[in-house]
Simulated assay, not measured.
Amino acid sequence: MGNSDSTLSKEQQKLLKAFKKQIGVVTTAKSVAPVEKIDVVEDDRTIFLSALHGVVPMPKQNQVQPTKPQRPVVDAQILAKRAAAEGPVQTEHVELSDTQAILNPVGSQSKLSYRIATLQHRVFEDLKAGNLRWYEAVDLHGCTVEQARSAVLQVIEMAKAENQNVVKVVHGKGPDALLKSYVNGWLRQHRDVLAFVSAPEQQGGTGAVLVLLKRAEKNPKYDRTQQRA
């Protein structure tokens, strides 16, 4: 092409030379750019994998699952002191017989279950599964029978005063299951109790019962004296 170039004018030769330079620059840019991009991507990946060296996934059993907060369990001794200072909570159910507990003792590991005939099956199943959130709970450990009776009555009245309908009673599961037998008998006699069942394992198992109560007629506060008037 050198000979043919000589037939061109000087002006044409300048234009041709400039055109060749432009072609050379574009070709170089196109060939180099992808190589530089690949190198950068590869370096980033290498750095990332290096940073993850030795990292292992956390075992599922070590992961904390979020749970709904529950109210703290009330100590029955505290309720007993409150009753001594303020007087017992007014209730229509102070006469709960011990006869059923004496005649029908329950085993320490046995599951308690009771429901009135008209209670919906779905509601009872939710109570049994622990799906109904309890409002208040009382721990009867260390109580005498009379202290335990008073505490059960009071925790029920406390819930009804706030128009709540689920409480938990922690009776324990000692070898003789004495308080467990009494709680089983008392709750069956209480006319505000719709159902009760041994709690799921994570909520106390056979050492506690979840109790479903009738809702008060007024919300949020219910005054029995107004109903009688």
Rank of each mutant, 00 (worst) to 15 (best):
34 P>K: 08
139 D>S: 11
77 Q>V: 06
188 R>Y: 04
166 V>T: 00
199 A>L: 04
88 P>Q: 08
168 K>M: 01
193 V>P: 00
69 P>L: 05
28 T>Y: 04
17 K>L: 08
10 K>V: 10
55 V>N: 15
38 I>Y: 07
108 S>E: 15
219 N>A: 13
144 T>A: 04
211 V>W: 02
129 A>K: 11
222 Y>C: 12
182 Y>E: 07
72 P>Q: 05
205 G>Y: 03
64 V>G: 08
206 T>D: 14
223 D>L: 03
175 P>V: 03
20 K>R: 13
143 C>G: 10
76 A>C: 01
33 A>P: 09
18 A>V: 05
215 R>I: 09
195 A>N: 10
46 T>M: 15
70 Q>R: 11
128 K>D: 14
111 K>S: 12
186 W>G: 04
199 A>Y: 02
80 A>C: 07
79 L>Q: 02
36 E>C: 13
201 E>C: 10
60 K>Y: 11
179 L>C: 05
141 H>R: 10
134 W>S: 15
221 K>F: 08
194 L>F: 01
18 A>I: 05
28 T>W: 02
220 P>F: 02
131 N>F: 09
122 R>N: 13
129 A>W: 06
181 S>W: 00
154 Q>R: 03
79 L>A: 06
123 V>C: 08
228 R>P: 04
88 P>L: 03
83 A>D: 07
122 R>W: 08
25 V>M: 09
115 R>H: 11
2 G>C: 07
127 L>Y: 03
116 I>D: 10
